[in-house]
Design a protein around this nucleic acid. Structure first.
Lengths: 323, 323
DNA sequence: CTGAAAGCGCTAACAT
DNA sequence: ATGTTAGCGCTTTCAG
């Protein structure tokens, strides 16, 4: 049978309150501290966090909601979030929403029933409607109408950098390839400010912005580049899409970076020790995770929070641009 | 204030026991069922899983321990495990051990304190010593001395297939590049049976098996291929290592698959909808996840379990072999 | 079929 | 500084 606080108290010859104090680091007399600790050792006592939760109404658990942990962008983010939270003594429920609102609702219900202290989520549905306003929620990238805290990489800056770096490398005809949904998200600024920068510089620019879900990707991409044969600088809304486009470019006999230079977005790596896949704008996922955790902690503790944190991105030079 | 079972009982004019029965799907009179459900609706009542856990000593939570969720092999596995578990009403604690025994111990402690019902783990330390024998543990790939359940892909078959496929494609001088630790793991069979198959067929074979951690990888790989210039068929212990070797091969001016054909292991994909990176032996991660979950459920429910399940692998043809 | 009541192991308020 | 005690919200006998 597992030892309880009562057992420890009896063995140490003290009251349960004193054991509780020891467990929670409240000052007690040195001699009693010694006695209690010894009894804890002797019995192999482990506190029951559920019982504690009953009293405190806290679980020290955060739910991490991502579309799919399989994708390296989310798995890297998840890795960092878990690391930060663990250091603070928090556990993390992994939730793969698959972008399905019904699934998200199930998770929300689970969260309500399990005393989950807060949510860190990357989601593009109107999840804010189901999550009651009293549970702290930090959203990545996506804006919500209500007062949900948002943390995001600086997509505006990213779009501008992408243009500048391509421009610096001699590109004359710029292109953007992306995808979007109707939701308000920081992501959109990648296209907007890339385009703005090009126009401001008086450069030619062509846009291929898919509405999700994408249909007939191959043909549309090929047609786009056949219709615009002078394109020599491409900015993709994320690394994977940029890679998919490059594959089509290859089929068209275009060489990279000789004929077309390509910059992606995200700075995805396939694991901590691997390299970036291409020239890209890196999202500072580790910092974003840190800030997200910081904000959720502030919210949990009733401290003031920043409703919006935008974090600078960095340019990563790879093999898909010249120089 | 959140509604409790008592509130529901009062509103419905029944006892709390009856509400509990309704929640748990125990038969009650139709008329009372209706009353209770209506009160639940009206109050927006959500059961408190912690309170339930206090009584039942169950949390419906499983801990998933992986070295790092960042790596696509583990993140794909985690994705599938979470999906299976969710369908059964289980939650999942994400644990990144980073391969550090000290970190694993912290997780074990957390697990003991949080009524975690079982562990699914990919770990190469002697974790079995810390985890008390009464908590169900399913291990992936790694053998333990004690009676821990193990689920693994068929590395023996994988090694044989790798040889056969390279042989079929005309290779004459075979090579294996891998890494290993001293722990007993299914993984080792990849080398053993690849080598065995080659010897049995009377083919020349060279082995480069690194002890972890790897030092001076580049030089050692280059030296290996310079010393063995006739190698024309390579089997890598996993996809990423195979890719790293290919990079060195490129530096040596070797073309793939023209000069050297390469087969990896794992069948890593960067997300559900993406393609395999190379010719490879795919581990059936989805099936492995299913079996792992099945076994853990059996263990939790006290049903008989299989102490060892080896699951067939499949050959995936990619661009790093001829044909 | 259902109400009443006894805890599960802990924390926190109240005494001393 | 520390012992005592009242619950937290639920499940589960035990009666009826």
């Amino acid at each position: 049978m597992k030892a309880t606080m009562k057992d420890v108290a009896k063995l140490a010859g003290v009251g349960v309150g004193t054991v509780s104090r020891v467990i929670n680091g409240v000052r007690v007399k040195d001699s009693t501290l010694k006695k209690v600790n010894q009894s804890i050792q002797e019995l192999g006592y482990e506190p029951d966090i559920y019982a504690r939760g009953m009293k405190t109404n806290r679980s020290n658990t955060i739910a991490l909601i991502v579309p799919t942990i399989w994708h390296p962008f989310f798995s890297e983010f998840g890795f960092h979030v878990e690391k930060e939270l663990k250091a603070l003594g928090y556990k993390i429920f992994l939730c793969n929403s698959t972008g399905d609102p019904a699934v998200e609702d199930e998770y929300i219900q689970m969260i309500k029933q399990n005393k989950v202290d807060g949510i860190i989520g990357i989601t593009y549905t109107d999840i804010d409607k189901s999550v009651s306003s009293d549970i702290p929620f930090v959203s990545i990238d996506r804006h919500f109408t209500s007062k949900v805290t948002i943390v995001a990489a600086d997509s505006k800056q990213g779009g501008e950098i992408a243009f500048n770096e391509l421009n610096k490398r001699g590109c004359q005809h710029f292109a953007f390839v992306g995808t979007h949904q109707d939701k308000e998200s920081e992501t959109k600024n990648r296209r907007i400010y890339f385009e703005k920068s090009a126009r401001r510089a008086g450069k030619k620019i062509s846009i291929l912005d898919f509405e999700e879900p994408i249909i007939d990707f191959e043909n549309q991409v090929q047609k786009f580049f056949i219709d615009n044969p002078t394109i020599d600088g491409l900015f993709g809304i994320n690394d994977f899409l940029a890679m998919d486009v490059m594959k089509e470019l290859e089929k068209l006999g275009k060489r990279i970076p000789e004929d077309i230079q390509v910059i992606g977005f995200d700075g995805v790596k396939l694991s901590e020790e691997r390299e970036y896949l291409m020239t890209t704008i890196r999202q500072p996922l580790e910092t974003m995770a840190k800030v997200a955790v910081e904000q959720i902690m502030n919210a949990i503790n009733g401290d003031p929070i920043d409703y919006k944190t935008i974090i600078p991105v960095t340019f990563i030079e790879g093999s898909t641009t010249k120089n």
